[in-house]
Simulated assay, not measured.
Amino acid sequence: MKGMPGGMAQLMKQANQMQMKMKKAQEELSKKEYEASSGGGAVKVKVNGDHLLTSLTIDAEVLKAGDVEMLQDMILSCTNEAIKTAKDTSSKEMEKITGGMNIPGMF
């Protein structure tokens, strides 16, 4: 940092602080769970902040109906909804830190 003009050193310091805040936020977000359901709660899924499926619950009544395609659609629908919620939440949290700047490779 020595030899840099004062403005550049300050900018580097701010960038490092932003990166640390983003890393902390990403760690916190990865621990959160996001739940979605389909079919009036017949199928429920949970995903974590890393967009990995952590829980899948299927009501026994759905299985009795025997409609495999409907069950597959419900699983896909609520899984995608939970992942979208996780991504949207992550984007909003990062925007708070970056002030809406798009920083490639940061998240």
Rank of each mutant, 00 (worst) to 15 (best):
E81I: 08
K21L: 01
V43F: 11
E69T: 04
K92W: 09
Q26R: 01
Y34I: 06
D88R: 10
A65F: 10
M106F: 06
M22L: 11
G3A: 08
T57I: 14
D59E: 06
L76Q: 15
E95W: 07
L11Y: 03
S30P: 11
M101E: 13
S90N: 12
L71I: 15
M8I: 11
Q19M: 13
M12W: 03
M12H: 06
V47A: 00
L71M: 15
I83H: 00
N48A: 13
K13C: 05
Q19F: 10
E28V: 01
A25T: 04
L29H: 07
A9P: 01
V45N: 03
G99S: 08
L11I: 07
Q14R: 11
M8P: 02
A36D: 03
E95G: 12
K64Q: 13
E93W: 01
A86I: 02
M70D: 15
T54V: 11
L71D: 12
D73G: 01
Q14F: 02
T57V: 14
L56N: 11
M94Y: 01
F107M: 14
D88Q: 13
L11G: 07
L76D: 10
Y34Q: 05
A36F: 05
K21I: 02
S30E: 15
H51R: 09
M1L: 00
G39T: 07
A82G: 09
E33L: 13
T79C: 06
G3H: 05
A36I: 07
N102Q: 14
N80T: 09
K96F: 03
S55Q: 13
L53T: 11
A42C: 10
V47D: 00
Q14C: 03
L52W: 11
P104F: 12
M1N: 04
D59A: 02
T85D: 00
K2F: 05
G6Y: 00
K92M: 09
V68I: 15
